[in-house]
């Protein structure tokens, strides 16, 4: 049996559904992983160890264990203590937390690298610690690490395929559905891979643009 890619158009609707859910899953998770990353970074720079430690602990847990396991825990495990999440929500939470921890590491070192004079100047005009962070330090830090954060976004989009195992009809699961119906694994895995690739090209283009915009002051 040779390869026959002409079969793909007849399964287009299921692939489109899959793409839609992959985009939804990734977009939300990217957003929350960035917000969470800034949050984790800032609390881990707090001068009180009592504030830093719990979050450093959480960070180590999410860095030191597999994403797949975290996904299972959040989806199947939390039910036992009465937290019943749907698969999509569980997926967004797992991806967001897992990548927030990595983003936090990047953002944390970027914050530390911002010149101390920037903080002093902010405080000397009367801004509070938080206002200085929000308006002066974090924007510069983020601009300096946009490429590194962009790489994490691309990784997140690819890792979102793991969420297929808890039954979210995203791109990987939808291509599996098409395969079990058509018995054409090669064609549909290639099709799914191509779609992931195109999505990531778009993402990279977006990151490049953001990079240019955030660095326009240099």
């Amino acid at each position: 049996m040779g390869l026959d890619f002409t079969i793909i158009p007849s399964y287009l609707d299921i692939l489109i559904t899959g793409t839609y859910w992959t985009v939804a899953l990734s977009t939300l998770s990217i957003f929350f992983s960035l917000v969470g990353g800034v949050f984790f970074a800032v609390v881990q720079l707090n001068r009180h160890a009592i504030v830093r430690w719990p979050f450093s602990g959480i960070a180590w847990l999410f860095m030191g264990t597999p994403l797949l396991l975290q996904l299972f825990l959040i989806y199947f495990g939390l039910v036992q203590i009465g937290i019943d999440l749907n698969a999509f929500t569980a997926g967004v939470i797992a991806l967001s937390l897992h990548f927030a921890v990595y983003n936090a590491d990047i953002i944390k070192s970027a914050i530390v690298a911002v010149d101390k004079g920037q903080y002093e100047a902010s405080r000397s005009v009367g801004l509070s610690q938080l206002q200085a962070m929000r308006k002066v330090i974090v924007p510069q830090a983020i601009a300096n690490v946009t490429p590194a954060l962009g790489n994490m976004m691309i990784a997140l989009l690819k890792e979102s395929s793991l969420v297929s195992v808890i039954g979210v009809m995203e791109l990987t699961l939808s291509s599996q559905r098409a395969i079990s119906d058509s018995f054409r694994p090669f064609e549909f895995y290639i099709a799914a891979a191509a779609i992931y690739y195109i999505l990531n090209l778009g993402l990279e283009y977006g990151v490049r643009n953001a990079e240019r915009r955030s660095a326009r002051y240099r």
């Binding site: 010149d115 004079g117 920037q118 002093e120 100047a121 902010s122 405080r123 000397s124 005009v125 009367g126 002066v136 924007p139 510069q140 601009a143 955030s214 002051y217 240099r218």
Partner: peptide, 18 residues
């Protein structure tokens, strides 16, 4: 509040580059 009433200018400017 204190610092709002005291302006400071630094050797290395420390302007906000962004």
């Amino acid at each position: 509040l204190l610092r709002q009433n005291i302006g400071m200018v630094f050797q290395h400017f420390n302007l906000f580059p962004h």
